[in-house]
Structure formats: C-alpha cells, structure tokens
Design a protein around this nucleic acid. Structure first.
Length: 569
RNA sequence: CGGGGUGUGGCGCAGCCUGGUAGCGCGUCUGGUUUGGGACCAGGAUGUCGGAGGUUCGAAUCCUCUCACCCCGACCA
C-alpha cells in the first residue's frame, strides 16, 4: 500500500481530551476519531488493527469448536422482561420505541437472544454441547465513558454462549473457553493474567477475568507470586488475623483532634500507627443505618459488604442522615455509645483489635484505648468486608499477596441455569425427560483489546505493535524517492516483491523529508522498517530496523527480501 | 448523579480580570530553496469566539440560561 493513496492523518499534538497514553496515541496515529462521548469512528488504519484482533479471536474460537452466528443489535423488550433484566439494567441500557410504540433496546449483551434461540432450536441432548459466538456492536450507556475506546459506550465485543446437558459438560465447556482465551491473548502478544472474579450483573457461579497488566488499568488484582492464586480485589478474600484479640491494656480516653477527619491525620497527630485506628462508614439499607468498621489503613469492599445478611442493597449515608442519627458530623463518628438499633459490622481485622482509636461522635474529638466488650458491645457481625492489601496472606496459604493494576479484556462465566430457567430453555435427556440447559457465557472486549495492547506496548515515539496486531508488517521508506531514479527503481522493486510475497507493506512514497516519514512510521508502530537510499544503494545495501531495535542493520540488496521475510518469521 | 474544569480556524493554545470589532505555534494550499530524524523563506486560505437571551453606542470579554466535552468517585468487555 502506498501512503500517497492511503489516509495517514497523523497529529503532532494529541487533542486535549485525551489523557491515557493509548487514547492519545490512537488519536495521533489516526486510528480513531471521536463522534460524541463514548462514540468512535474506526479510521482505515485502526480498522485494520481491529480486524487483526478479530481474526485471531475467530481462529481460536473456531478451533475450540464454537460456531459463529450474528444476532440483531436491537432487541425486543419482552425478552428482557422475561429474565427481569429490563429493570435490572436500568439506565445502562439504551431503550427506544419503534413506530408502534413497542419497547426495544440496543443490546448491551445477548444472553436473552441466544437463550431464545436455544429454547426454540435445541430439542435433544444429541445436539449438545454447542457453543455459539458472534462479534457484535454493543451499546452500554456508561455512567462515565472515558479513555477513548477503553470505556466507550458503543464498542465491539466477541460474545460466546455455551449450552450443555449437565454440570460436568458446563465445566468442560468453560474450561475450553478459558483455554481458548489464554491462547488468544498469548497470540496477540499481551501480558495478561486470568483472575477469579465476581459474577456481578451477569450472574452465575464461577467466573474468571482476563486482565491485561497495566498501571493505568481500572481494576485492581491480587495475586500470589509464589502460587497460582489470582483474583480481582473485589473478590480476593482477606484472611482473618490468626492471633486472638489481646486484652485491654489502656483506659478509655477522649482526645482533642480538631480538624482531623481522616484516619491518617488522627494517627499522625496522636503518633500512633494508622493500623491502630478504626474508621466507621455509615451506610443505609431500607432506612436502617449501619456502621461498617474498618482499620484505618484498609478500604471498604462494597461487593463483600453487600453480602452481609440483610444489607443488600446498601448506599452510603448522606451527611444529613449521619447528623440525625449520630448527632455528629462525618469525620468524627464511631461505634461507641450509639443507639443500639444501629447495626455494627466489623471487619475481621477490627474485631481482633484492642486499645484502638476511633471517632467520639463529637466534632473535634476521637477516643483512644477503645476495647470491645468493655467500652462498647461486640459487633453484630464480624466479616470480611475490606479490600486485600499488598502483604496480606494469600487465601491459598502459599505466600503473600501482591496487588497489580489490570485492564479487563475478557470475562468467562459459568452461568448454570439462570437464564434457561427464566426463559424455559429445556432439552430432552437420554430418558426423554426435559432438563434445563446449562449455560456459560464468554466475552472479549475486541475494541478494548486494541487500546490495552497500546497501553502495554508504546514508547516515546509512539505505538509498538505486537506483530499479530500490526496494521502493516513492514514500513518501506525510500530516501530521495522523488529525485533519484535509482532509489525509485529499487524501492518500487522491493515494494512489488514484498507484496508478491504476501507481506503487508506500507510504502511511504510521499515527497517528504526522511525525518517526517520515520516519525510517522514509528508513531503508527509498524514492527519492521526498511530504508532504501542512494547512500545505501551505492554500497549495494538496504537498511533494516525493527521497531524495538536501537540501531539499523545493513542488508545486501540481493538478499534483502529473504532476510526481511526471515525477520517476519 | 455528585464534585472539579474546559469550550476561540483541522490540532495545541493566548486574548477575557480592566468591553473598542480576533492573534500565536503546528498543520494545510501556492512558489522557491532544501533532502538520513517532524527543514527554511515568501505569499495565501480557513473563525457566526459552543448556543440562546440580556446589559451596552459597542461583547470573545460583563450577566442569565442552556448545550457539549474532559477529569475525580459508584458500572463493566
């Protein structure tokens, strides 16, 4: 492909809207252009990358025995009402009406549609197992779209749905997809980790996320370097302290802590470790106020807290509610001497503390030397309600946890019969008896994979594509193409040979200075660059340089093609 | 939705406080000089200053409303 006939509209400066490296580079390299919040056009160069990712996904899905289908993006409300998700999805779902005033949505996912297919088409166990997948545009009206295509509202997703005759079959289908995902992300050249995950709104029993490791990732993942334990921090279990609580050693004391509303400030003022302070988080369920107690150096895990008996769903109390129930402003609230009707749930780590510091329920004061059983009753609930932190023991008992950031590019769920039951999707087993289909669902954020790959593979000059994703494999850059007949002839010939050999080549035939061409080819991240110049031709050579290489290598002109092909592998 | 911020040629920005009829860099077009790391010179084109209303002799600038976008928190591939 000649650049003169392509569309390269690279930018020296990234639009101010973009903050994340991948977003900036995608805009600068003209991979995408924004239409509206969370809506992006894939430009020619970007689309080539997207198609590369899709191709790898298709190959591996097909190899795993999945069958490609293509479902409508627009779906009737009736299906969603059957599973109850018409209400569950809330404003995340883009709804619309047709000319007959019938309700539809732009599909945020396709469990309902595929389950409808399954209940109509699957009659017998002889048709099982079966796995249908598609690569489709989804729309989710995200609360806050951001980071370009990383969290867009409209995005491309590969979604697959497996149907099995029983739990054993489901486990096998799940495993097959898990393995296929590992192969897909490995082939794409990504550094990733599969982690145990919460099942969230999709529902089901088992679930793993595939996280691309990147500091800019929105997810925190906990993993144990000395074992294979890995889980989303949302799910990772914080082990209860092994040692029993010590007895009280200090007297209860009220201390003056003006303006110190954060545990860090209180600990600093009193000269005590942050881990000896306790914070109380006021939450509300059905108008009932709860206090959740956490160590000062720990953070609340809302997923875990919502599993406390009788607390789901909960929301954070407003300042007004806090003042009304505790007669004190936030920042100084605590569990001592409060209305016994207020439920108290303590994290395991708090329940094991003695002589701790907490709010006094009086503005400007905290209490020190606080002890359960003496100064306040034992908490109503003791549970794991905090996020694990680096250094916590691994739940598998084989080491200590570390925390890393990740970008979720894939998610596999063992759904079980949640949808087949809601929608009556049954098959006849060997005895001719109707049984519910066992389902699994498996997603890959195709557009997000592109952004994640850039996030992980870039340098000061631009994108550094893993070869399987690169829009072109070779950048052919002639120096002096428009004034040297020799350069022109040699470059044209090499271009022709590369294309004949099936190598995707971007041939920079523009009348630009070399610096401009080098900069553009590096920005768009092509893995291999070949330079043809008068200088080189005099020595009978052309130059080769890999995108990650520090310097160029001279290849004898006669061997150039073969040597380049060897580089491509 | 709550909190913070920004809207001025394609991109990045200045001008706004203290009203006087729009400017800089990059890009782009034309001509010339250059040609191994985002060249130089000369000339040109591109703006209803996000929109609506108001104040004023006069509004990018002041006031009101509104829209869009970005960043920080709850959602998820």
């Amino acid at each position: 492909m000649r650049v003169s006939r392509y569309f390269l509209a690279t930018l020296k400066e990234a639009p101010a809207e973009a903050e994340l490296v991948s977003h900036r580079l995608m805009l600068r390299a003209c991979l995408i252009r924004r239409l509206g919040s969370g809506l992006y056009t894939w430009m020619p160069l970007g689309l080539r990358v997207l198609r590369k990712v899709e191709a790898v996904i298709r190959e591996e899905m097909n190899a795993a025995g999945a069958l490609e289908v293509f479902m409508p993006a627009v779906q009737p409300a009736e299906l969603w009402q059957e599973t109850g998700r018409w209400d569950v999805f809330g404003p995340l779902m883009l709804r619309m009406k047709d000319r007959h005033e019938r309700d539809f949505c732009f599909g945020p996912t396709h469990e309902e549609v595929i389950t409808d297919i399954a209940r109509r088409e699957i009659r017998s166990y002889r048709q099982l197992p079966v796995n249908f997948y598609q690569i489709q545009t989804k729309f989710r009206d995200e609360i806050r779209p951001r980071f370009g295509v990383m969290r867009a509202r409209e995005f491309s997703m590969k979604d697959a749905y497996s149907f099995d005759a029983g739990k054993t079959g489901l486990a096998a289908s799940y495993r097959r997809m898990y393995d296929a995902y590992a192969r897909i992300f490995t082939r794409l050249g990504l550094r990733f980790r599969a982690v145990a995950a919460d099942t969230g709104a999709i529902g089901g029993s088992a679930s793993h996320e595939f996280q691309v490791i990147a500091d800019s990732g929105e997810d925190a993942i906990a993993f144990c370097p000395t074992s294979d334990y890995a889980a989303n921090v949302e799910l990772a279990e914080a082990m209860a302290p092994p040692a029993p609580r010590a007895g009280p050693a200090r007297a209860l004391e009220k201390v003056f802590t003006p303006g110190r509303t954060r545990c860090e400030d209180v600990a600093a003022l009193l000269g005590v470790p942050l881990a000896s302070t306790v914070k109380a988080i006021a939450v509300v369920h059905d108008d009932a106020l709860w206090l959740l107690l956490l160590r000062g150096d720990h953070a609340l895990n809302e997923v875990k807290a919502s599993k406390l008996p009788g607390l789901e769903p909960f929301r954070f109390a407003t300042e007004t509610e806090i003042v009304r129930r505790l007669a004190c402003k936030p920042g100084y609230i605590g569990p001592v001497g409060i209305d016994p009707a207020i439920r108290i749930a303590a994290d395991h780590s708090v329940a094991a503390m003695a002589d701790f510091v907490c709010g006094a329920n009086e503005e400007g004061y905290h209490l020190a030397g606080v002890n359960f059983g003496r100064d306040l009753p034992e908490p109503h609930f003791v549970a794991d309600i905090r996020n694990v932190v680096a250094g916590d023991p691994s739940p598998d008992g084989k080491g200590v946890l570390e925390i890393a950031r990740g970008i979720e590019v894939g998610h596999v769920f063992a759904l079980g019969t949640k949808y087949s039951e809601a929608m009556g999707a049954r098959f006849l087993d060997e005895q001719g008896q109707p049984q519910l289909l066992e389902m699994g669902c498996y997603g890959i954020g195709v557009t997000r994979v592109v952004a994640a790959a850039i996030e992980q593979n870039n340098d000061a000059r631009g994108i550094v594509w893993p070869a399987p994703m690169a829009p072109f494999q070779v950048a052919l850059v002639p120096v002096g193409y428009h004034k040297s007949a020799e350069v022109r002839a040699a470059a044209d010939e090499l271009h022709r040979k590369l294309e004949e050999a099936g190598v995707e080549t971007l041939f920079d035939d523009r009348d630009e200075r070399p610096g401009v061409m080098f900069a553009d080819m590096e920005l768009i991240g092509l893995p291999h660059r070949v330079v043809v110049s008068e200088r080189g031709l005099k020595e009978g050579r052309v130059e080769y340089q890999g995108r990650r290489d520090a310097s160029a290598e001279k290849l004898p002109r006669a061997e150039a093609l073969a040597r380049i092909l060897a580089r491509l592998g």
